[in-house]
Design a protein around this nucleic acid. Structure first.
Lengths: 166, 166
DNA sequence: TCTTTTAAGTCAGTCTTGTTGACTTTCCAA
DNA sequence: TTGGAAAGTCAACAAGACTGACTTAAAAGA
């Protein structure tokens, strides 16, 4: 049916109309994306920022504060507030570096890992339903477009995490 | 090559690993998605909330405040602050309803339409590049997954806007 | 060794964007 | 004519981002 060759391509998918639909889809979908974890977080008076910190500490165990800062793309002061409450509440452990003792390495405690699992499972559940409804081909396209939409620093972080261990 | 039938399907795309990549892709891509308009807005000391209001007033000219409220999913007080500055600055016009004079119908002024165009063109440019890089099949999948990720009220709003006039 | 740089943390203040709650004004419709 | 809906306003608050200035500790370099 459609000619998807590299030269004789049908470019109708690049009209402003199509782009606008994609933009609105991103806006509305992102709300769904964050809705379930947000509900859980609200119950325990945490916010989205806590979720993000837990997620990336879990993904890159033993990461330094500086690295987390650059992944999250926020300032040190902003992260510090969140990190402090997580440490005080016993969800995150901060260990002095052995090679470089200026650095702090961050780890989830058992309690922190439990909350992270709860939050990410809620988020995965919706994602799983969406993936299942859309099918594997759609999922591949979904990821391809998102990757092309990232700016360079984000893409670097994304790629670095992409194939790291569970 | 791949069997994508409804029963004998390969379900590897539903692993937690795959879902996690999708979640991280959404997180990093959303930053790219908002980055360009955010830069423009910062210069004129507006925020993302102003952009959203301008976008949907443009999309649904003459919409009422109540309708805009439900599309944006924020409280009346929150929207009102944003709307007030946009009206004061002459970007949005609020007309008393002729049929129901309690309602206000919202329109962009020439100046408001100009800013909206500038913001959305910046956003479209990135979207266009991503679409072009990923190709039409990927774009179709991208949209399909996003639509499946929305919660019900958002999907309603999305569908209502989807095929409305330019 | 002395100096500079880096990593982390802190204090103070600001801004945007969201929230509740209470209240008024306007005005349609039963 | 009165009840209730739509809109708007005021006040207070919170999360989460920001800047700027500063401290402490430790590594790295001259």
């Amino acid at each position: 049916m459609a000619d998807t060759g590299s030269t004789g391509e049908n470019l109708l998918f690049l009209t402003d109309e199509q782009l606008r639909k994609g933009i609105e889809a991103m806006f509305f979908a992102y709300r769904g994306f964050t809705a379930d974890p947000d509900r859980i977080l609200a119950e325990m008076s945490y916010g989205r920022a806590h979720h993000r910190a837990l997620h990336f500490i879990n993904r890159a165990r033993g990461t330094t504060v500086n690295n987390l800062l650059s992944v999250l793309g926020v300032t040190k002061q902003s992260l510090n507030r969140v990190l402090r409450t997580l440490i005080e509440d016993g969800l995150v452990e901060s260990r002095v570096g052995s090679r470089d003792r200026r650095e702090r390495h961050l780890y989830l405690t058992r309690k922190g890992a439990e909350l992270e699992r709860q939050l990410s499972e809620a988020q995965r559940a919706r994602m799983r339903a969406a993936y299942r409804a859309a099918g594997p081909e759609a999922v591949a396209g979904f990821r391809r477009v998102l990757e092309a939409m990232m700016d360079e620093p984000s893409r670097q972080h994304y790629q670095a995490l992409k194939d790291s261990k569970p």
